[in-house]
């Protein structure tokens, strides 16, 4: 259990409903059409099996093709060999297929798929294609917004492949899993808006779990977060992830996220 990990790097959400802009889960809503979201996520997780911290750097770009479809590309960088190394990348697409809105509320459903590649060593039972395993994931997301509160939940199937070229997926651990998430977000400030320049503050709690399908080994984490939105365009998140229960081997389950996000609205006009 030497070396480190790349895991727990995650998605940060890229959309425009701030209460839904969860730190590691993605809502059913999309990036606005024609707009580009640029995200830089950093995480620092404490090593369980050795001393020190595992640092990850994950830049991402998201693009809204139209009102229902978005794409995202990510790169995974970590300090596993004491210097920063790019270990892989990921492509993601999400399709919003159902939407019912009313004044100050909405309910949305979306389907997504992700493919990731990674060349790092495999050293834990947890499957994480964001920065750890090569593999794919496909799932469904439901998101409900009621006034200042957003609730979002997802379920997905995730399968790990060999981390080519050097690290085939071990035969003795399950290579596919079911993931589930439940997230809550609330707009705390301002109570009343006056203009776009006002800083918004959101509080969030996210629950993230996984069960390895073959053997039933599971974990469940909780993640409280605080989020600031500046000028209705830039976003800053701080989050802490803590394992609640786990029956699987994980190399660094607990740690911090720090996330910076900026939206370039309506690219065509800026040309």
């Amino acid at each position: 259990m030497r070396k480190i990990i790349l895991f727990f790097v995650t998605i940060s959400c890229q959309n425009v409903f701030s209460q839904e802009l969860f730190v590691i889960t993605d809502p059913a809503s999309n990036v606005p059409a024609n707009s580009l979201g640029v995200n830089v996520m950093q995480s620092l997780f404490k090593e369980e099996m050795k001393s020190g911290y595992n640092y990850h750097f994950m830049p991402e770009v998201s693009y809204g093709l139209n009102k229902n479809i978005m794409f995202r590309a990510s790169a995974f960088v970590s300090n596993r060999n004491s210097q920063l190394v790019t270990e892989g990348g990921s492509f993601y697409t999400k399709y919003r297929f159902y939407s019912t809105d009313d004044l100050n509320s909405h309910f949305r459903l979306a389907a997504y798929g992700r493919y990731s590649f990674n060349n790092a060593d495999i050293h834990q039972e947890q499957i994480e294609i964001l920065g750890h395993n090569s593999g794919f994931e496909t799932g469904l997301i439901a998101t409900k917004l009621i006034k200042k509160v957003a609730i979002s939940s997802s379920i997905s199937f995730e399968k790990a492949l060999d981390n080519k070229p050097s690290y085939p997926f071990p035969d003795n651990i399950g290579d596919n899993a079911t993931n589930y998430t439940l997230s809550f977000g609330k707009l705390m400030y301002p109570k009343k808006y006056t203009n776009y320049k006002q800083t918004n503050i959101n509080l969030m709690v996210e629950f993230v779990g996984q069960t390895i399908n073959e053997n039933g080994k599971s974990y469940l984490d909780v993640m409280p977060a605080v989020q600031f939105i500046f000028n209705s365009q830039a976003r800053l998140d701080f989050a802490y992830r803590q394992e609640l229960v786990s029956s699987m081997v994980r190399s660094a389950p607990n740690g911090f996220y720090f996330n910076l996000y900026y939206t370039f609205f309506d690219l065509k006009k800026q040309k």
């Binding site: 425009v16 409903f17 701030s18 802009l21 939407s99 100050n104 909405h106 006034k147 209705s232 365009q233």
Partner: peptide, 11 residues
Amino acid sequence: TGLTCSMCSNA
């Protein structure tokens, strides 16, 4: 419809 936050509104 469907929004309550200023970032959404800005979109």
